[in-house]
Design a protein around this nucleic acid. Structure first.
Length: 927
RNA sequence: GCCCAGAUGGCGGAAUUGGUAGACGCGCUGGUCUCAAACACCAGUGAGGUUACACUCGUGCCGGUUCGAGCCCGGCUCUGGGUACCA
């Protein structure tokens, strides 16, 4: 029998399905292992060969763990809500649920062909009411809790109300936007509306005014990356900054815990670093500045309170709330002009434009609390309203942005820190500020002469004693805006009573997404849900019109997989306590900040409430690299329909044209296929080299427009899923980006055919021997078992594939057909090539599936070498090799080396200066 | 700008973490088989050099440490990714 991969793969996929080979359940008799892929958004384009890379890696690891006796949870599902489906719905009128369903079906067909070991009974879809029931439920829980900063935990809003009733909010330490202080008596005196407004300031899920990029034409809020040059990327419509009531999640409350948790995780340092930067903890002080001739106070956050004596001006964000009150009459016009000029710019644009220094003087002065000096107050868009207090004290001597600003507007610069050993110089002569946090304080009153660290401690104490500020830790991490003006997302389980939001009771969940006539905003600018008929409670209270964002459904899906059919809760206690957390999570780097911050937050919240037993959801995480496309080009001679081959193109004036990589083989163009590819090439003429048309190539993003997309289905049809799986791994290290070039796949395919011939003789008959393997055969297989086991644990799958090739090459050379050896080979190969391994395992006479076999142990005794080929080098250059017994002593080795004739040549009669012998490694002789 | 990762044959990539650079595969060259092709198999393949050896050079660039550096240290160049005036 030939290696007929199509039949074999279909046969085993059917059997696995029929026998429910990959179904898993809680099983206390076995240790658990949870392997998770980042679930995909099912796009209309289907999968290309880049997508399954991570899935194949995780599948190999899952199968390996199962062979080692673990009960492996390895599920898959779909992140089914998303913008493309909604856009398509707007264009075609088709319900996004319908197109999503079609896309999912296509994804499933493609995934099934690759032979994954997913337990499909556990599939989840974020758009399924049985699933988003629990997304909505989690939201209602967030509505019903607040974050106690003293205990660093989320606690019930009911307990908060009890506190208010006994002592007001004076002693409450909470993550809140509430500023007004009230007593118990006052609280009791407030009416229900006032009380609800106050509570909203404490809830983890809260409604707040937020600055958003509003696009009137599209009737929606846009993300920063959907806006460019003040207009929407899609459509080019005007975008303005607008304040809107939006649901937000108080993610920032968890900033410290999100930071601390990183230390417990087995993630790469670079990924942890990205998260740390995103959370952005900084220590410093909050300082209050009085304003000349005004009662108001400007609160400022600084990480350098030590430089307070060096502050020479202040800067407010253009959005600062005190701006209109403090602006002097003669400056009003200029300030308004300035505000007009920055209005259209998004935060990202303001930040990105480093070279353009803009700002305007308000006419007001702050008062330095230490010196009583007047500091002119400016506004500038380099100060952001979303960070700190939206106001800074500017210390141009020791902050490079302040320095640039001071230079540009001719503001004074004072030196207050001098580098150890340096004499103070005139800042007017400086090219840049001195930002380093080291040196001695000068010109600094009570902290003069101290070094920076001491100065910070002392000045904070002073600020606190004098009551114009306090030491403070600030975070960059902001609360997550949770409202979207879209149709295709989870509806909020929220209705409005007297204009105030209330959440639905648990027994009213899920609140299902209603039908609408069009997927567009209403005429008066309401979100699409404004079109739904009867979108209100039984009592006529209107439901929320916004829907939830993409990250809502992906924040707890790993928990749902543990218990996907549970109608009583997100996950049962039993299932959660068994599966606990994700042992291995594989996905792309693009989720390094968004998804991985939000789901950690979500999980910590559920942990506080006692619904999950682990505080961190993803123990180990690996980012797979991107598969890039490898594009091919043809070269058209300008002004003609003639195409010149790659190496001849220099003699002509040519245009590079992308050509479909699927009609190019080893960079040779299939001319007939090219002529039929598009009508314009029908009558193309060619200038060939050696009778062939050679194409050029380039590594680019894999995309339709580059004609370099390769579909896994096509590869599978031609070479089989096992070849695809192995080739994807063989391309290079998992974490690294690398180009896809179908050319190399034949080597992998040849390897599988060669493997097949170890089992089948020249007549195509299965033939194996039950005799004991020879030592040479044992050595080959045991060496491979060892290498494969180690490589899989290191996720070094490309080197495992080489090891398999070497193993098959060596067994072929030995003409080995011993059952004992072949059987072990089938098992260790099965995670990589499950179909062919299963087939070969079964033809050896096994009745059970190879999936349930035991990964063989290797026997060290077969691996012992008794001779070592020593490289003998002179002055570090290898001149010859010498076989010595591994037991040889240094003295014996030296004697043998010195006696060798080539040594005599290199010694040239001289005595060696030094002889270095590392037993088992090398010999080096210094002459 | 900052952070992270990387740079090794014609190509994808190996290298036990300081010890024979280029495993494995692709491609290419020659050969066997075949009427021919495909498949398969065998041999060769970093550059220079030689009939063949010998030998010389060689892991982005410059310098250093070491008996010995692709790997460690200092400085630079380039590429990819992330991030963004975060006070």
């Amino acid at each position: 029998m030939e290696y007929n991969f199509n039949d074999i793969e279909k046969k085993w996929q059917d059997k696995w399905r029929k026998n429910q080979t990959y179904k898993v359940d809680v099983d206390a008799s076995k240790p658990k292992f949870y392997v998770l892929d980042m679930f995909p958004y099912p796009s209309g384009a289907g999968l290309h060969v880049g997508h399954p890379l991570g899935y194949i890696a995780s599948d190999i690891y899952s199968r390996f763990k199962r062979l080692n006796g673990f009960n492996v949870l390895h599920p898959m599902g779909y992140d089914a809500y998303g913008l493309p489906a909604e856009q398509y719905a707007i264009q075609t009128g088709q319900h996004p649920a319908k197109t999503t369903e079609i896309n999912i079906k296509r994804y499933r067909e493609q995934l099934d062909k690759i032979g994954f070991s997913y337990d499909w009974d556990r599939e989840v879809r974020t758009c399924d009411p049985d699933y988003y029931h629990w997304t909505q439920w989690a939201f209602t829980q967030m509505f019903k809790h607040y974050f106690n900063t003293k205990t660093q935990k989320s606690e019930s809003i009911v307990s908060l109300i009890a506190l208010f009733e006994t002592e007001g909010n004076v002693n409450v330490e909470a993550a809140t936007s509430q500023e007004e202080v009230f007593s118990a008596e006052e609280w009791k005196g407030f009416d229900n509306i006032k009380q609800q407004e106050i509570l909203l300031n404490y809830r983890i899920a809260f409604l707040a005014e937020t600055q958003v990029n509003w696009c009137t034409e599209l009737g929606t809020v846009l993300a920063n990356d959907e806006v460019k040059d003040g207009v929407s990327v899609r459509g080019g419509f005007q975008v303005t900054q607008k304040k809107m009531k939006q649901w937000s999640l108080r993610v920032s409350a968890y900033a410290q815990r999100l930071l601390d948790g990183l230390d417990t995780l087995d993630w790469t340092d670079s990924l942890k670093e990205v998260q740390r930067n995103w959370i952005g903890r900084s220590e410093g002080a909050s300082v209050n500045f009085k304003i000349k001739e005004h009662a108001d106070i400007i609160e400022v956050f600084t990480t350098r309170p030590d430089t307070l004596y060096g502050a020479t001006f202040m800067v407010l964000a253009p959005e600062h709330e005190l701006l209109s009150q403090i602006t002097s009459n003669d400056c009003k016009e200029k300030i308004e002009n300035y505000l007009e000029s920055v209005k259209g710019r998004t935060e990202r644009e303001r930040i990105a434009d480093v070279n353009k220094i803009t700002g305007e003087f308000t006419g007001a002065y702050g008062i330095n609390p230490l010196t009583g000096e007047y500091l002119p107050i400016w506004i500038a868009d380099y100060v952001l309203s979303g960070y700190g207090t939206g106001a800074i004290m500017a210390v141009p001597g020791h902050d490079s942005r302040d320095f640039a600003f001071a230079r540009h507007f001719n503001l004074p610069i004072i030196q207050v820190v001098a580098k150890e050993g340096d004499v103070p110089t005139d800042p007017a002569t400086w090219d840049d500020s001195y930002d380093a946090k080291e040196g001695k304080m000068i010109n600094s009153g009570i902290i003069d002469g101290l070094d920076v660290k001491e100065a910070i401690t002392k000045i904070i104490k002073h600020i606190e004693d004098e009551k114009f500020g306090y030491g403070k830790v600030n975070f960059r991490l902001r609360d997550a805006i949770f409202s979207r003006q879209r149709y295709w997302g989870e509806p909020f389980p929220v209705y409005y009573k007297d204009g105030l939001p209330q959440v639905l009771d648990d027994d009213k969940l899920p609140l299902e997404l209603p039908e609408v006539d069009k997927y567009l905003p209403t005429e008066d600018g309401q979100p699409p849900l404004g079109r739904a008929n009867g979108w209100e409670t039984e009592n006529g209270e209107p439901f929320e019109l916004n829907t939830m964002p993409g990250f809502a459904g992906s924040s707890a899906y790993y928990l749902r997989y543990m218990d996907p059919k549970n109608s009583k809760g997100l996950v049962s206690k039993e299932a959660n306590e068994y599966w606990q957390d994700v042992d291995l999570y594989i996905g792309g780097t693009e989720h390094a900040t968004g998804h991985l911050v939000y789901s950690r937050f979500w999980n910590k919240f559920l942990f506080d409430l006692g619904y999950v037993c682990k505080e961190e959801p993803f123990k180990k995480l690996i980012n797979q690299g991107m598969i890039q496309g490898r594009s091919n080009f043809v070269y058209r001679v300008k002004g003609s329909n003639k195409y010149v081959s790659y190496n001849l193109r220099k003699d002509y004036d040519v245009t590079d044209i992308h050509v479909d990589v699927n009609i190019v083989h080893h960079d040779v163009l299939d001319i007939e296929k090219f002529k039929n590819w598009m009508p314009e090439y029908k009558n193309a003429e060619f200038i060939l080299e050696d009778g062939k048309y050679i194409c050029g190539y380039a590594v680019e993003k894999m995309s339709k427009s580059m004609f370099n997309v390769v579909n896994p289905d096509v590869i599978i049809e031609q070479y089989g899923a096992d070849t695809l799986r192995i080739y994807e791994m063989f391309l290079g290290p998992l974490e690294i980006s690398k180009p896809w070039d179908t050319s190399g796949i034949e080597g992998v395919h040849r390897f599988l055919k060669k493997l097949w011939r170890l089992f089948y003789n020249a007549d195509g008959k299965i033939e194996f021997s039950t005799e004991k393997p020879t030592d040479a055969e044992q050595k080959v297989i045991h060496k491979t078992i060892k290498k494969i086991g180690e490589d899989i644990e290191k996720f070094s799958f490309n080197t495992s594939v080489s090891a398999f090739m070497i193993c098959v090459n060596e067994l072929s050379d030995l003409k080995c057909n011993k059952k004992e050896v072949l059987e072990k080979l089938a098992i260790i190969l099965s995670p990589f090539a499950p179909h062919v391994a299963e087939e070969l395992w079964s033809v050896l006479g096994n009745e059970t599936t190879v999936v349930d076999a035991l990964f063989p142990d290797f026997d060290e005794s077969y691996l012992v070498e008794n001779t070592k080929k020593y490289p003998i080098s002179f002055n570090g250059k290898v001149r010859f090799t010498l076989d010595m017994p591994t037991t040889a002593t240094k003295e014996e080795i030296e004697k043998a080396v010195m006696a060798h004739e080539i040594s005599q040549k290199w010694l040239d009669g001289k005595a060696p200066k030094k002889v270095i012998i590392v037993p088992g490694k090398i010999v080096n002789i210094v002459v």
